[in-house]
Design a binder for these strands. Structure first.
Length: 115
DNA sequence: CGATTGACGTACG
DNA sequence: TCGTACGCCAATC
């Protein structure tokens, strides 16, 4: 085995892996992913990773990733702002005022669910 | 090369 | 409870 250097590439890879494992109708947060990986304070890097998610195959359901408030902060990075909300609603996720309804109930924590 | 920004979150007062 | 400060690290100006 090799030394497991916590490189950013590895960080990105784990982010993509976790997001891909998010089941439909569920959402997760940047901090939850970051924390699951081990860098709870690197939540910004998670967001930056999502920025390149569109260039990763298979595609990453970035629309299932929202901020800690359940707010669709990243909707502006999609094709259109309504795309993210529409994708969520398509998965039975209710979005009101750019905010995920029952976010607490739909929250999917890798450290809890995926464990 | 230095300063600012960014799909966030936690800590502190 | 709310507002401000800091950390994180890369990309951009």
């Amino acid at each position: 085995m090799k030394d497991e250097k916590p490189t950013l590439d590895h960080f990105f890879a784990q982010v993509y892996a976790v997001v891909r494992l998010v089941p439909p109708g569920r959402v997760t947060s940047y901090g939850a992913i970051a924390k699951y990986i081990g860098s709870a304070r690197s939540s910004r890097m998670v967001g930056w990773a999502m920025n390149g998610s569109h260039a990763v195959k298979p595609k990453v359901p970035a629309h299932r990733v929202v901020n800690r408030n359940g707010l669709l902060t990243g909707k502006h990075h999609f094709a259109t702002e309504h795309d993210m909300q529409r994708l969520l609603e398509k998965e039975n996720v209710i979005v009101k005022d750019d905010q995920v309804v029952e976010f607490k109930r739909l929250f999917w924590d890798p450290s809890t669910e995926l464990l």
